[in-house]
Design a protein around this nucleic acid. Structure first.
Lengths: 146, 146
DNA sequence: GCTCAATTGCAACCGGGTTGCGCCAGCCCG
DNA sequence: CGGGCTGGCGCAACCCGGTTGCAATTGAGC
């Protein structure tokens, strides 16, 4: 992976560039799936978790990443797509596989928006579908467990 | 509140009736809103939290209550409406007020269901809207803060 | 190269959730 | 009534993800 690209992302978002932050952002962009703090901890085993945490904090403040809560008890982070803000783009659906415990990002499916009762103001939406992912479904049917 | 009703609910769901469980179920039905473990802990300050926890566990196993994760880090519980199962009824939307930190149960709004990519199997849906609730909206506009 | 603010690593802490264990209550059976 | 068994309870300890205080280090700007 080319560090230039990573550094460019950080600079564009106005995040101060450090070696640790490059590592964290690199891991996040390399992953095809939202990552939790402990996921990152195991990938970057030389880096202290508080440093990763604070890097993510900085990224999030500058809208370089956004966090999603898939109800597993550990917050996941993923790189924001848009060039600038990502408040709208973080409204897409996510899928949590109860078999392999992976969280998928259904980028193409934007989170549905409902009409709220009068007086309620919406700020953001969290839409999580739980179930069995494609691979686990295949695996289970192959093994005759389905 | 009439204990008879509480006991009747527990018996109908096949949960063994104990004094603690009556207290927990009573608190849950009395609350107009989903309650967390620590909410219940403060309401029932004579009861140990592990007892409350295990009561909730028992209730949930017998579909007397269901849990919802509003992304605040503490799971909320609410009494199932239906007489029997509640697997469908727990698919309604919830609203989390970021001002007063209350979770509302939008019973009349069922969680929207999206089409998943091929091979993905849906088990349940979690739909949380975050924002400002009616009361906080009123309060803020009354105080000129909005 | 120097200075000062920001970042990092470490260790400790926090809070929600969970569990091991001994004790107690209730119940069935003789 | 008495004994034994099952299940519930309280206590304390633990787990884990997240967070923070602090001292050491880094690095950006001069």
């Amino acid at each position: 992976m080319d560090n230039r690209k990573i550094i460019e992302i950080l600079e564009r978002k106005g995040v101060r560039v450090t070696s640790i932050r490059i590592l964290v952002m690199e891991a996040l962009t390399a992953a095809s799936r939202p990552m939790s703090l402990s996921d990152l901890e195991t990938v970057l085993d030389t880096v202290d978790k508080s440093s990763i945490f604070r890097s993510l904090e900085a990224f999030e403040k500058h809208h370089a990443v956004h966090s999603i809560d898939d109800g597993t008890g550990s917050v996941k982070y993923e790189v924001c797509e848009g060039e600038d803000e990502c408040t709208v783009s973080d409204m897409h659906a996510h899928f949590y596989c109860e078999k392999c415990h992976k969280t998928y990002c259904l980028k193409e499916i934007s989170a549905p928006v409902v009409d709220l009762p009068e007086g309620f103001e919406m700020n953001s939406v969290n839409y999580i579908v739980k179930g069995t992912c494609r691979e686990c479904g295949r695996r289970l049917s192959r093994d005759g467990l389905l």
